[in-house]
């Protein structure tokens, strides 16, 4: 820490100052959002008037907020499941390919990050128009969200497949294990922490994604981000910021819990592996 500080010399102060300002850009909007949700008044105003939790109560009792929340959970869970299955299979396949084709496949699996969501949604919407049966279903929405989440799962799982000891496989093969057995008993158990981390990451991406919902939802239902988007352009009520605060807090609590659990898990693993 001392070297880093002294090596930067007179650059250090301006660097810290700029980063403080940039950090405030990340933090202050959130602070303002949380503060407006405390208001006891009926308008979305900063500074808030008085303090009450009435808007939290309103949101929690309002099916127009709770139903989108439930729908978002369901859609995100389904899409994450698909992304985890195909992302993990892809990461394991890359391990077995020649370096050349591994590079091509890896690039393909990451490309969806660059895909502009509106353009992709229009394409999926075209599929819905062709097949009427899909229009009242969540099929295209879930497939699309799965594709958007897949690169994140793939990247996180790939970070672990690179660290697998190739000798484990060789040893298992020598002992006569077939590849499904090796996959199930040797490789997947070692990848579990990263698969779970990839799933959490992918889920949060899908849960927050709004553009596909704009185009692909059956009439009459909304996901939570879409409900927030429409609430922010129509009724500008403190219910919006109360809902935003709650869902952000929920995300942070789940993540903190997850980080804590995975640290505990890593500790246990170390204890098991040291004789």
């Amino acid at each position: 820490m001392r070297t880093a500080a002294s090596a930067l010399g007179f650059y250090r102060a301006p660097i810290l100052l700029v980063s403080l300002l940039a950090g405030l850009m990340l933090f202050v909007p959130f602070l303002v959002l949380v503060a407006t949700s405390w208001t006891s008044g009926g308008l979305l105003l900063f500074p808030p008037q008085g303090f009450s939790l009435r808007w939290y109560e309103t949101v929690l009792q309002d099916p127009r907020w709770m139903e989108p929340f439930a729908l978002s959970l369901a859609v995100s869970a389904a899409a994450t499941l698909l992304a985890v299955i195909f992302g993990t299979a892809g990461a394991l396949a890359v391990l077995r390919l020649s370096p050349r084709s591994a590079r091509v496949v890896r690039t393909l699996f990451i490309v969806p990050i660059a895909l502009p969501p509106v353009a992709y949604a229009i394409g999926l919407y075209g599929v819905n128009l062709q097949l009427d049966a899909l229009r009242s279903s969540f099929v295209t929405l879930i497939l699309g969200e799965a594709l958007i989440a897949l690169p994140y799962v793939f990247v996180v799982v790939s970070a672990a497949t690179g660290r697998l000891d190739p000798n484990l496989r060789k040893a298992a093969v020598t002992l006569g294990a077939g590849w499904p057995l090796i996959l199930r008993r040797v490789e997947l158990p070692l990848l579990i922490p990263n698969i779970v981390a990839g799933a959490v990451f992918g889920f949060s991406i899908v849960f927050d994604e709004v553009v596909l919902s704009v185009f692909l939802l059956p009439p009459g239902v909304q996901t939570l981000p879409l409900k927030m988007l429409s609430a922010s352009t129509e009724a500008f009520s403190p219910a919006l910021t109360a809902a935003s605060t709650m869902v952000s807090l929920l995300a942070l609590i789940v993540l903190a819990l997850f980080a804590w659990l995975s640290r505990a898990g890593a500790r246990r693993m170390r204890k098991v592996s040291t004789p």
Binding site: F27, F30, T36, V210, S232, S244, S248, A251, L252, L255
Partner: peptide, 18 residues
């Protein structure tokens, strides 16, 4: 981390309020 794990809609609404 706060910014990474909150949704774009939420963050944009925060900027709107500013």
């Amino acid at each position: 981390m706060l910014s990474l794990w909150t949704s774009i809609v939420v963050r944009t609404v925060g900027w709107m309020l500013l």
